[in-house]
Design a protein around this nucleic acid. Structure first.
Length: 862
RNA sequence: GCCGGGAUGGCGGAACUGGUAGACGCGCCAGACUCAAAAUCUGGUGGGGGCAACCUCGUGAGAGUUCGAGUCUCUCUCCCGGCACCA
């Protein structure tokens, strides 16, 4: 064994060992408890970034730990390979999207292998392969036949200059297109939808059962689905036969309606605009800007009167109708009732338009409010100024008004969801073709199973904008499967969230070319541990849950939910460095900047290496191209090896918090591995120690042995239950420090060193698998460490005779005492009061109370 | 705007169930080794006071509950994630 630690050498050797032994290839084994650990698969953008490295290290540590616990562990990897960046690269560099994607996959695969992740590569999936997406197309045709997929109009961002549809990301905060700079318009085009709303209730109810998920993710999903109970009510419109239907969750405020608002695109508004030029112009202006909810909610609320009134059915009052930019045709009924006294947005709108603000509910506790100043929105109310419905609680008002409108046939009590059906159409090229055919005679016809897959042509020319599929007659023209006549293929492709909604199931039988899934899916599913970024808390995770139920109801699998346990990891962030010149900001890479410190280590400034002149130290932000603050993991791996990068990632913060990059701290992780290596080297240089005689240890040896077993217990709990790998590593570091300090050369001392180092190497095996593999062999073991069992702490070794207690006076720490493990309360109290420093603070004062917290502290209240 | 999360030394973080604030690591300071540097090793390191024992202040701001609050409650500030076409 060399005294020095050469990570490259170690890692190459160990990775070869795994490769040659097929160490991570798994098959179904009914005799073993299975454990399916999955990390969210990457988009093949070109190179692994730090977020990937963090994500996959967490998943790998959990996988390796579970393997050491004796489980049959599946950990697969694949590529979320369709998407916008490939198309952008294709247009920019004139390189086919397919070629760009496959080359990226090849490079990133070597990077993942270099990190030593324990993947079963035989199950690798790329979603852009027809072998993968054919099954997705197959399922969609089934869903169409079941009525779960349908077509209707939907709004998109339309760039009037580029004549193309833009993603929300491509529209800036001012509502302009990212390349053209033109004001974007909302435009309606036909779209395919999946009926996720049919599953709203089940998706909501089952959140209660997801106890392995973080609470915040469950909260966000509940809110996203947004179940509400309310009342639909018809307001008649003067001079019209068709009433205006609205939905409200606050029927108790119906008597406070002083206006109505409809979407600018509402038929009522459009009709009124015919002979009102100003209104027509307003409606036109309302179409400007992006479609994202954030854009709609933050824009200035504007409205214009329509020359008609609506009539409140409760009190027969006529109220003005407005066309408003904040009411959307595609949400709800496209019309709302305005109650300025009891809704913030309506309050703002009423003030701007000088409308009446009326108080119709008052605080149940009788306190004073002034709705002219601020809307009162509490549910803890009593109705006032509401005719026969005055004096009621929220619930009573809700029930009585519900009965009232239902009896008259002008409304119904309704349960509604905020969740909307999932629009899956994209007017883009690099995606899975929607397996539908449009026939003039037969309408929308699904592609028959025998004609699947509809293969996306990979060799295409990207000229200008929009999808090249629409300009390819050989793709476009086909025959109708129903009548045999001329027909056209759908040229829209699918939202890439569709592919990522079921890949976790396909890993169970990735090479099956006969069916989408088979019985192996039921062996492996649900995923026992899913690991990925918190940014997926709602969309991806909700769509995957939805797809799981779709596949269940198609008879493909039996479980109800895809992911048993979920770990959401935080972002990787880093400092930014910049200079401002003529109002333009230039960012500099952290690698090119040197920091200066004062005598206490506080940062005093930074300068650029190339010109030696100062740069500004900016905020800590998510690593990104635009801020130039990314650190390439590859450079770190080349310099320190995969184990150091893995150790650093896991040590520097808990997985669910953000991770702030620091070059210096990576150096620290490397130092620790070197130290451990040297410690093992120094130990194995001597002859093999005898087996330990635990009854013959002196006090110091017993203390060290207790430390060994306490560390095993702590690390097992931190890794297995808490997922706080940072504290697990800190505990191992403490143990290594204790072992390094021990200079006990006696046989028992040497035996203890062996026991301690064995434990350290086993506990670190999931985190630094290469180094552990080699050190385990050096410590005299024949087996490969990946086949070893996780160590178990010995209770007897952890027993203590005496415990340390803290003594407080009035809650302030004043002394420490040591008492026997079996000491009773009386003895503890006496000991505590005899402590000299405690006496100083108690002297001359009356003891009011003595609080003894067993095993922890004594608090003397004087 | 709505939903969710966060804020603790110079820095990353620890304190798990309301019970010793700052584990572990980085950085910094001092020393050893060295011609010198790097590497390595030893010691110190929240602010203020004190020769010391110790005292005192201190967990984004303000209030509250409690014998005791980083932890619970309320109000606020700032930062981050998501908002349905980035993935």
């Amino acid at each position: 064994m060399d005294e020095r630690y050469f990570p490259d050498q170690v890692e190459t050797e160990v990775q070869q060992f795994w490769e040659q032994n097929g160490s991570f290839r798994v098959a179904e084994d009914p005799d073993k408890e299975k454990f399916y650990c999955l990390s969210m698969f990457p988009y093949p953008s070109g190179r692994l970034h730090m977020g990937h490295v963090r994500n996959y290290t967490i998943g790998d540590v959990i996988s390796r730990y579970q393997r050491m616990r004796g489980k049959n562990v599946l950990q697969p990897m694949g590529w979320d390979a369709f998407g916008l960046p490939a198309e952008n690269a294709a247009i920019q560099n004139q390189v086919p999207a397919a070629k760009w994607t496959y080359e990226n996959i090849d490079y990133m695969r070597t990077q993942l292998k270099r990190m030593g992740f324990a993947y079963d590569w035989h199950r690798e999936i790329a979603t852009c392969h027809p072998e993968y997406y054919r099954w997705e197309q197959w399922l969609l045709t089934r869903l169409f036949e079941k009525g779960l997929m349908y077509k209707r109009m939907a709004e998109v961002n339309w760039d009037p200059v580029e004549q193309t549809v833009l993603a929300n990301e491509q529209v800036d905060s001012e509502g302009r297109g990212w390349r053209s700079g033109a004001l974007v318009e909302r435009r309606e085009i036909p779209h395919w939808f999946l009926k996720i709303t049919d599953y709203a209730e089940e998706l909501l109810d089952e959140i209660d059962n997801l106890d392995g998920w973080p609470d915040e993710v469950r909260k966000m999903q509940r809110d996203w689905i947004g179940r509400s109970e309310g009342l639909e009510v018809d307001f008649s419109v003067e001079g019209s036969d068709s009433p205006l239907r609205i939905y409200t969750t606050r029927p108790d405020t119906l008597f406070g309606v002083t206006f109505m608002a409809v979407a600018a695109a509402h038929p009522l508004a459009l009709e009124a605009a015919k002979d009102n030029f100003e209104l027509a112009r307003f409606i036109d202006e309302c179409r400007r800007g992006g479609t994202s909810e954030a854009a709609l909610e933050t824009m200035e609320k504007r409205g214009m009167r329509i020359a008609r009134n609506a009539v409140n059915p409760l009190n027969g009052e006529a109220v003005p109708i407005f066309a408003a930019n904040y009411v959307l045709m595609s949400y709800g009924t496209g019309a709302i009732m305005g109650v300025p006294g009891h809704d913030f947005r309506d309050h703002d709108f009423a003030r701007e338009n000088s409308l009446e603000i009326r108080e119709v509910v008052a605080p149940a506790d009788g306190s004073e409010i002034d709705v002219q100043q601020e809307a009162f929105v509490s549910y803890d109310i009593v109705t006032v100024n509401s005719g026969d419905f005055s004096g009621l609680s929220f619930k009573d008002a809700f029930d009585r008004l519900g009965e009232w409108v239902e009896a008259r046939g002008i409304g119904t009590r309704t349960v509604r969801y905020r969740l909307r059906d999932w629009g899956i159409s994209r007017q883009r090229y690099w995606g899975c073709p929607v397996p539908m055919i449009h026939c003039e005679r037969c309408g929308e016809v699904p592609v028959p199973e025998s004609d699947l897959p509809v293969v996306l042509p990979e060799d295409v020319a990207h000229v200008g904008h929009g999808s090249p599929l629409t300009r390819m007659p050989e793709f476009l023209n086909t025959t109708c499967p129903a009548c045999g006549g001329k027909a056209q293929r759908e040229t829209d492709t699918l939202d890439t969230f569709v592919e990522s909604s079921w890949y976790y199931a396909r890993f169970a039988c990735a090479r099956n070319d006969q069916s989408m899934l088979d019985e192996r899916a039921d062996y492996w599913l649900p995923v026992d541990q899913y690991v990925g970024g918190i940014e997926h808390a709602v969309l991806h995770l909700l769509y995957a849950r939805f797809f799981h139920k779709l596949m269940r109801d198609a008879g493909l699998i039996q479980s109800d939910e895809p992911f048993k346990n979920l770990l959401t990891q935080g972002m990787v962030v880093a400092e930014t460095f910049y200079r401002e010149k003529n109002g333009k900001t230039t960012y500099f890479a952290p690698a090119d900047v040197e920091m200066s410190h004062d005598a206490k280590g506080k940062v005093t400034g930074a300068k650029l290496n190339t010109d030696g002149k100062p740069v500004e130290v900016g905020r800590v932000e998510k690593m990104s191209k635009s801020k130039n603050n990314g650190v390439d993991p590859q450079a770190m791996i080349d310099r320190y090896g995969a184990d150091t990068v893995r150790l650093y990632m896991m040590f520097t913060s808990p997985p669910d918090q953000k991770l702030e990059w620091s070059d210096a701290a990576v150096e620290g992780a490397f130092r620790f591995l070197k130290k451990l290596w040297k410690l093992v080297h120094a130990h194995v240089r001597e002859k093999t120690p005898p087996t330990i005689d635990t009854d013959a240890l002196d006090d110091a040896q017993q203390t060290l042995r207790r430390k060994i077993h306490e560390t095993i217990a702590k690390v097992s709990d931190d890794v297995g239950r808490r997922y706080t790998f940072n504290t697990a590593i800190a505990a191992v570091m403490e143990l290594v420090n204790a072992l390094a300090k021990s200079d006990d050369a006696s046989p028992a001392g040497r035996a203890l060193m062996q026991e301690g180092l064995d434990a350290v190497v086993l506990l670190l095996a999931p985190i630094v698998p290469h180094t552990s593999h080699v050190l385990w062999r050096e410590l005299g073991h024949e087996s490969a460490i990946i086949d070893e069992r996780w160590p178990v702490a010995e209770e007897a070794a952890m027993e203590r005779d005496a415990i340390d207690l803290v003594v407080q006076v009035n809650g302030k720490l004043r002394g420490h005492i040591q008492v026997s493990k079996s000491a009773d309360r009386k003895t503890i109290e006496t000991e505590a009061l005899e402590n000299p420093n405690v006496q100083r603070f108690v002297e001359g004062k009356a003891i009011r109370k003595l609080i003894v917290v067993p095993g922890k502290l004594v608090n003397v209240v004087v």
